[in-house]
Design a protein around this nucleic acid. Structure first.
Length: 429
DNA sequence: TCTGGGGTCCTAGGACCC
DNA sequence: TCTGGGGTCCTAGGACCC
């Protein structure tokens, strides 16, 4: 049997851990640059606030509502959800983390699944402060469906188990096509236009119909799992195959030297992520684009990639290479809204395949030692303690003093980091 | 004024090889 | 009119996830 442990309205729940006064009230969390709503409390959902609406429309559409608003604070969410995973690790025979707020568990050998799940949910709530819902079933697709019920109806006490044919049919008959894991908007409209309304209707369709309609192994697996088979493979916690760091800007940027600051930060972040998972990249790409919402302005989108001479995770190497790509990519006269750096062709970080012509092994070794030291300092003292000079943001206020890059992103409603920053630690009177 | 960020997998079709 | 057969590798695009 599989279980899925899912943090309820994850980012909102994280914010509420240090703001218990907001329990029971409408709360939303915004994306970077305070752009869109990315998380909503149940009370916010009940008001009719939809996922992804731009923040500026919130006041227009809900003028009379008192809604608590937070900028996203990934440092906080990462740390608190990490604590949730630590508990799951202790309680479950096997687990794999599926996303920041979800964890699959394998429950072989556990006899009483329902009390096990209820107890896990209680333990997590007590020790971390985050409410979780748990769905348990013979496969991952059905477990996901079970977790929806656990979330929706209080009577389940945060844990719903689908462990016989009757429960499976009942659950499927109450599940819409759009709520099935693995079926998105496109497939939903194709399925619904064939007159199929519920997950049970879909499960009852013949296999030949699924094959001929979709010609797609992924869809076939979903159909089989709805019928009780276990065939969606486990995601092993493998290293990522590509790593991307990208951001929309607060406003628009035309000047290449400002763009360079952004690109250098994204590149440095990619290098850090590579080192964290103990890998190197062989291909590096940079993209740049204007604001697609501004149809009145000239548009430009482009992406360029290059192969690194020696596979690398060195901040200096990756920043330099990204910079060279930016020079080729950049066209003056446009107002840019977003840029990003992508690293691909990822391999374990040792032994490195040395290029025949890149004989400067001594320099590579030096840069490795430098990165190691910088990573350690930034880990202990906070992420931007040591950066390259080129990562600092040009002064915006005329003082000539460079600013740290984090200030380039708008986050007017950001909460503190009491679990990761000494400066934010909670003081008792 | 204001519209997120980061991933994975699968398939078709073209290039190329013998 | 009429243009082999079979295989591999790579890429672009489309679908999905959170």
């Amino acid at each position: 049997m599989y279980g899925i442990v899912d943090c309820d309205n994850c980012y909102v729940s994280c914010e509420r851990v240090f703001r218990p006064d907001l329990v029971g009230k409408p709360v939303v969390v915004l994306s970077n640059n305070d752009g869109c709503v990315v998380a909503r409390s149940n009370e916010a959902k009940a008001l009719g606030i939809t996922a992804g609406i731009p923040y500026y429309q919130l006041a227009e559409k809900f003028p009379d509502q008192k809604i608590a608003v937070f900028s996203s604070n990934y440092e906080l969410y990462g740390e608190l959800t990490g604590r949730v995973v630590e508990i799951i690790k202790k309680e479950a025979p096997a687990y794999f983390r599926y996303s920041i707020d979800e964890c699959f568990v394998k429950l072989n050998g556990i006899a009483d699944l329902k009390p096990w799940g209820e107890n896990l949910s209680k333990t997590i709530k007590q020790s971390v402060g985050i409410p979780v819902s748990i769905g348990i079933a013979p496969n991952k697709t059905l477990a996901k469906i079970a977790s929806r019920f656990a979330k929706k109806y209080r009577g389940y006490r945060h844990c719903c188990v689908i462990d016989n044919e009757e429960k499976r049919r009942k659950a499927l008959s109450l599940t819409g096509i759009e709520d099935i894991w693995g079926i998105g908007r496109r497939y939903t409209s194709r399925i619904v236009s064939s007159g199929i309304k519920t997950a049970l209707d879909l499960a009852k369709m013949p296999e030949s119909w699924v094959r001929s309609t979709f010609n797609n192994i992924v869809m076939l697996r979903t159909w089989r799992e709805l019928n009780g088979d276990d065939c969606v493979p486990d995601e092993q916690m493998a290293a990522k195959k590509s790593i991307c760091t990208s951001r929309s800007f607060n406003g628009m940027i035309s000047d290449i030297s400002q763009l360079r600051t952004h690109i250098d930060n994204y590149a440095a972040r990619c290098a850090e992520k590579l080192r964290m998972q103990k890998t190197v990249a062989t291909i590096l790409g940079v993209f740049l684009n204007t604001n697609p919402f501004r149809e009145d302005l000239p548009q430009y989108y482009n992406f360029l990639e290059t192969r690194l001479i020696t596979p690398s995770n060195s901040t200096i190497t990756i920043v330099k290479t990204a910079n060279a790509l930016l020079e080729q990519l950049y066209r003056p006269g446009y107002r840019y809204k977003k840029a990003g750096v992508i690293v691909m062709g990822i391999a374990p970080d040792s032994p490195i395949q040395q290029d025949l012509f890149d004989t400067d092994a001594e320099m590579i070794a030096k840069m490795r030692r430098l990165d190691t030291v910088v990573d350690r300092i930034n880990k202990v003292n906070g992420t931007e303690t040591i950066v390259l000079c080129s990562q600092q943001y040009p002064s915006q206020n005329g003082t000539g003093k460079a600013e740290i890059f984090a200030n380039a992103i708008k986050h007017d409603f950001k909460s503190a980091n009491p679990t990761t920053r000494w400066s934010d630690i909670i003081r008792l009177k």
